[in-house]
Amino acid sequence: MSFSTRKIDFFHPYIIPVAILIFLVMGYIGSFNYRFENPLNTQTILTIIFSAALFAIATFITSKKFTIEKTKEINFLSEKILLIFIGIALVLQSINMVLLGGIPLFNSVLKANATTNLWRVAYPLFLILINILIAKYYNRKYLLLVLLGALIFGLNGYRTSVIGILVSVFITMYYIGKISRKFGIIFVIIIALGGLGVGYIASQSIATQTWTLNPVELVFYRAAFTQEVFEKIIPLAGTTHGHILSMIFSSGSPRSFIGNYVLHYDVCLTSTLFGPVMLDFGYIGLTIQMLFMGTFLKIIHSLAKKGIGIGIYSIILTHTLIWIETGPTDIMIWFLYLLGLILIILALKKD
């Protein structure tokens, strides 16, 4: 039985506020169990709940106000062209690791320099095209390409790449009706093992790391630590006056800047979906961001009825879920939002 035949849409944008609340609970549990002196404070908890509520409200209002009855499929991407460029993406990432001189997953120094311009081309190229390929020309043999891509990009040392590829393809397959109960369970296990494995191996490769956590404990620790960073950001709300946003769309490392600004030492930090905008623009900025994301994802969701639309929605939803921990500081992922905007414009022109 296909999950997609059921009345519940498991990957409706409402999954974002649900995931935010789950992440909050994980962080609260983690803040008790590891190196944190105190659990998350009330203001942090209420701010995260407030953010989730804003997203849900925007999604609900948009679902009532925005509908497109018919969408036309974009047909200029043939199966052969997609396969060629997917192959190019895998070759580019392989060349990237050769030029780095090793496998970043097993070397924290290499990992720090692994997100090169080659990777910035290869990853989004593979991510976008593999989802479009699955959505438009599904064939079970193409799942081997999915696993190969997850492996090659996973060797870069970032679990978000593995999760981004596997989860987005899972969502795409869900919407085209290719996820049976048994297959879904197997795929979820692969996603969990891939994400946990890459995250754990990469953490063990850090030369200065002295603590020892198992892969599951590491997940709760990361959730707690990231939310602790956000807790420290709240008193500094609005003090960077848009500097982080400007860094995202220019040069520099927003995460390293946040590490220096908030914790006062040179470290690259994830600060939740809410941290960067809170530092830049305070609660007003946070409100605008969450309302925008709720509205935008719901519009893209309404267009996710055929091949390319399904693929783009799956990618944007997946990386918004990832942003709940990491924060929206990657220009490459904002480029995916731009693809969504193009999809909306094309749909409105055809409507």
Rank of each mutant, 00 (worst) to 15 (best):
L127M: 13
I333R: 07
L54M: 05
D9G: 04
D330A: 11
M293C: 04
L24E: 09
G184F: 14
F220R: 05
A89M: 10
I22W: 15
I103G: 00
A150P: 06
T47W: 03
P39I: 14
L145E: 01
L339M: 11
I95S: 02
A237E: 15
G30P: 04
I342L: 07
W211A: 06
M332S: 06
Y14A: 11
Q204C: 14
G242E: 10
C268Q: 06
I322S: 04
L21M: 07
W119K: 08
P215S: 04
G340V: 14
L100I: 15
G30E: 04
L125A: 11
V162M: 05
G149C: 09
K80H: 12
Y175Q: 05
A122T: 12
F225I: 15
R120S: 07
A58M: 09
F50D: 00
I128G: 05
Q209D: 15
S63N: 02
I57H: 00
P104V: 13
F281D: 08
G282N: 08
R159Y: 15
F292E: 13
S271M: 09
G282A: 11
Q209C: 13
S250K: 05
S203C: 15
G101Q: 10
M278P: 02
I74D: 05
L193E: 09
L129V: 15
L218I: 10
S168E: 00
V169F: 03
E37S: 11
N139S: 09
F296N: 09
V169A: 00
L336P: 05
L336F: 13
Y34M: 07
I322N: 00
E217I: 14
L99E: 06
L297N: 02
L77Y: 07
Y14E: 10
I16C: 00
M293V: 09
Y138D: 01
L317R: 01
G285R: 10
M97F: 09
A192E: 08
L129A: 10
I234V: 06
S203M: 15
I165K: 05
I22H: 08
T71I: 05
I190M: 06
S203D: 09
F274A: 06
I130V: 03
F170R: 14
S250E: 12
R181G: 12
I233H: 00
S161W: 13
T212F: 02
I88Q: 01
K70V: 15
S4Y: 02
G252I: 15
L218T: 12
T287D: 03
T42V: 08
S205Y: 09
T270R: 04
E79P: 01
I81P: 01
A135I: 12
G194I: 12
V188Q: 05
L273R: 03
G238W: 05
F225A: 14
I345R: 04
M1K: 11
L99H: 05
P215L: 07
I288C: 05
Y283H: 07
P17E: 14
Q209G: 10
I88R: 00
V109I: 10
I29L: 07
V188L: 09
G294Q: 00
I152Y: 10
I201C: 05
I186G: 03
G199P: 06
T42R: 02
G275K: 00
T240R: 03
Q227W: 15
N75L: 12
L129R: 04
V262C: 01
S161C: 14
Y283I: 13
F230T: 02
L343N: 04
A207M: 10
F50T: 09
V98Q: 03
I333V: 15
G195M: 14
Y158A: 11
R255P: 08
N260S: 02
T329F: 14
S94C: 15
M1H: 07
K306T: 11
T318Q: 06
